[in-house]
Simulated assay, not measured.
Amino acid sequence: MTTDSSVFETDLATLRRLLGPPREAEGGFVRWTNVELLDGSSGAAVAEAYDTLHHEEVLYHHDAATGLRTIIAIHSTALGPALGGTRWYPYEDAEAALRDVLRLSLAMTAKSAVAGLDLGGGKAAVIGSPADRTPGQLAAYARAVNHLAGRYITTTDVGTTTADLDALSEFTSHIVGTSPERGGSGDTSALTAETVMLGMRAALQVAFGDESLEGRRVVVVGVGKVGGRVARACAAAGASVGVADVWSEGAERLAAEIGADVLDPATAYTEPCDVLSPNALGGVLNEQSIPELRCRVICGAANNQLLRDPEDAELLGEHGILYAPDYVVSAGGVINVAVELDGYSEERARAIAARVYPTTLEILELSERLAISTADAALRRVEHRIAAQVV
């Protein structure tokens, strides 16, 4: 990261262009409230309580001493403090970082609401390479979190680790996902994979009238922490599993372990199968890819799988593909860290996570009953939850 003051001026000019004049600016902290992108790219609000057009707050901070540049977006605190991870990534510019946190914080509101958590949605981006991160930058970032006075609670995301959270916890209490030694829950991948499997069984029940994986063909794309666990669980349940990952060595090692076959990641999405489980990149379900799919069910942990939501969910339905909304089935991670706020208990976390099966089933059945997309059905669930709280 650079300490050049011109970076601050460039970032500020970009954010003013997109957000208008800030409500306050002092000491390297710049804050906007009731945020709406001025270029109209936020999209149209499609629900009354779950407002997809506005965000409550955006905070930008540049720490001149360390060169830290961060943007934190709070979409909603209607249900409680906004929870969302910190993404430490070498964004091209402040606009790219802003658009990312606005999109992801919106999704976090939906994820917490549909999981039944008393939390809202937030997200943070730090502009820079995690390889260049310094202790001073972590401390500066913690000050930005503290500036929001508990309205935002952070945790891990791309480019941040449990060790980073442990370091941040020296400077802020508005944090979850630290190591068990620090009173946190540690790695959330196990519970995330568990809720994906619960969602998958619910989707199989709706699609085939039988939730069993025995004899089913499952293609898992992305076999990192979560995807690898999903592949193992499917194989253990009797499914024929194909795995694909850009890290071919990892895919080959996992395939040898569980008796799966290795697929080319460039063509894995079009592999004939009963279940396609995306666990890597977002935006993979779109106008170009959907007509090429040869699956009956889609259920995975990758965030924002639909490039256009809900339009691409409607297109999936037109092609006879049952899509289990990703933020519904991947809720295990946020559930795991949310439980920390009252003192972590694995038993309590798993009990809340178990709700994902009936929730997914209800959403998919509502979609069928009302002849609407599964994305629209999930949105109704989110809207109902938030509306009930704000009335």
Rank of each mutant, 00 (worst) to 15 (best):
E214T: 14
A331M: 04
R103E: 05
R182Y: 10
F8T: 03
A190K: 15
A203V: 09
V356S: 04
V221S: 08
T86R: 09
Y344V: 10
S179L: 06
T162M: 10
A193S: 07
V30W: 00
A268P: 12
L165N: 04
F208C: 07
T86E: 05
V262F: 09
R296V: 13
Y141W: 11
Y60S: 08
G215D: 10
A202G: 08
T33Q: 14
H384Y: 13
Y89C: 06
A115R: 01
R348P: 04
S179N: 04
V114T: 10
D132C: 06
E365K: 02
I72F: 06
I74V: 15
V243C: 04
A47Y: 15
T66S: 07
L204R: 05
I386S: 12
E26A: 12
H174W: 15
T14L: 13
V220W: 11
E92S: 14
D326C: 00
A268V: 14
P22Q: 08
L165H: 05
E36L: 14
G28Y: 04
V391A: 15
E347M: 12
L341H: 02
G228H: 10
P325K: 02
L379T: 14
V356A: 10
T134N: 03
T14F: 06
A73Y: 09
A163Y: 03
R201M: 14
P90M: 11
A375T: 09
L119G: 00
V241L: 12
A94H: 07
R69T: 02
R201Q: 15
E314R: 14
R296H: 13
A387S: 14
L281H: 13
R17P: 05
G120V: 00
T195S: 01
E257Y: 11
M197I: 06
A49W: 12
A387Y: 13
T156H: 09
A324N: 02
R355Y: 08
G228M: 12
T70N: 10
S240Q: 14
I71D: 01
S5W: 06
D376C: 08
L341D: 00
R253M: 07
K225C: 03
D132L: 13
T109V: 05
L79E: 02
H55F: 14
L254A: 06
V241H: 12
W88C: 10
